[in-house]
Amino acid sequence: MVERLTISRRLFIGFNYIFLALLSILCILPLVHVLAVSFSSSSAAAAGYVKLWPVEFTLESYKYVLGKEEFFESILMTIKRVAVGLTVNMVLTILVAYPLSKEVNKFRGRTIYAWVFVFTMLFNGGLIPLYMMVKYTGILDSVWALVLPQAVPIFNMILLLNFFRGLPKELEEAAFMDGAGHWTTLWKVYVPLSAPALATITLFTMVFHWNSWFDGLIFMNSPHNYPLQSYLQTVVIQQNFTSASLETIAELSKISDRTFKSAQIFLGSLPILLVYPFLQRFFMKGIVLGSVKE
């Protein structure tokens, strides 16, 4: 379609481009600024000289952060949590989504099961009863406390359920004709065909486990068991408002509190930035997935 550009149309297009460019820059400027601070000398940072480029470039704060034992402990815990959590979440998501994707005449009881799962999205017992349950089941202070309470991510399960439903029924019927049962059909037909959906859910689940912090804070008695984001919560956020102990003040006098925090903020978001290109590619698919319904 060839369109004649009037002057007002040209003006609009120009304004549109400028506005959108400014908006997107504005979105990431804060992150760039913090990154610049983390590479700057502590005196320059404390004096507020740093804008968008490091002033008196140094790796001091990174050396300091990476030399801290707590930092490594928390990274290890996060890796553990992502590995265990991802495995449990993915297996259970697949195992629950497959039966619930069946029509009710092919799976008696489907409706009741479905409601039992969906109701947990609508209602919850609250923070304290959940804490008590985690305590009673004896998983407090272990990685299981970060995994089991949300072992079945209902939203992802529904995403996968809708994807399963979109697959042609003939495939399943052919598999049954050949004598396959439900287990074989699920692992040999459904799972291989759902690779794009499963990849999307895998990435979302990894991001979820990487970013979670509150459960670590309340379910872990010992700070040595904090996952990274919970640890960062205590050093980057809490110290801002509560008075730091004498010990940490002495530590911090060597290095600017600000560059130190900035370095940790950057390190804490680094894995997300690394998987971001993949996230972005799968992201659109994830949205389309949810809308595949019959």
Partner: peptide, 10 residues
Amino acid sequence: VYSYGPMLGA
């Protein structure tokens, strides 16, 4: 256990 348990615990 972890969703309906807490609902009762409430």
